[in-house]
Simulated assay, not measured.
Amino acid sequence: MTDRLLTVDNLQVSFHTRDGENKAVRGVSFHIDKGETIGIVGESGSGKSVTAKAIMALIPPPGEIIGGDIRFDGESIRKLSEKQWRSIRGNRIAMVFQDPMTSLNPVKKIGDQMTEIIRRHRHLGQAEALKEAIEMLRQVGIPEPERRVRQYPHEFSGGMRQRVMIAMALSCQPELLIADEPTTALDVTIQAQILDLLQELKAKTSASIALITHDLGVVAQVCSRVIVMYGGMIMEEGTVEDIFYRPKHPYTQGLLRSLPERKAGSRERLVPIEGTPPDLLDPPPGCPFQERCPHAMPKCAQLPPHFKVGEGHRSMCWLNDDEAKGGAGNGGQ
Rank of each mutant, 00 (worst) to 15 (best):
P283H: 04
P247Y: 10
A220N: 14
L58C: 14
D321V: 12
Q151I: 02
V41G: 04
Q253V: 12
P260F: 00
H154C: 13
S208V: 01
A57P: 00
K248F: 03
R246W: 13
E43Y: 10
P182Q: 09
N330M: 15
P304G: 05
S208Y: 03
V219T: 07
A301K: 10
G47I: 15
G326E: 14
D112I: 05
F30Q: 04
V240A: 13
S87F: 15
A324L: 07
V271K: 09
P60N: 06
V140C: 06
P62H: 08
I77H: 14
H295T: 02
L197M: 15
D187H: 09
C172T: 03
T2A: 11
G159F: 11
K79C: 10
E36W: 02
M56C: 15
C293W: 14
L195E: 06
H121L: 02
D19C: 01
D279F: 14
T115W: 00
C293R: 07
K308L: 13
K248I: 03
G67P: 08
H16G: 04
D282W: 00
V240L: 09
R92S: 12
Q12Y: 11
P272M: 05
E36R: 00
L201W: 01
G141Q: 12
M160T: 08
E236P: 07
L5K: 02
R138K: 09
R150K: 14
G27Q: 02
K83Y: 10
V271L: 15
P278T: 07
E128I: 07
G217Q: 07
L256N: 01
F15N: 15
P143D: 14
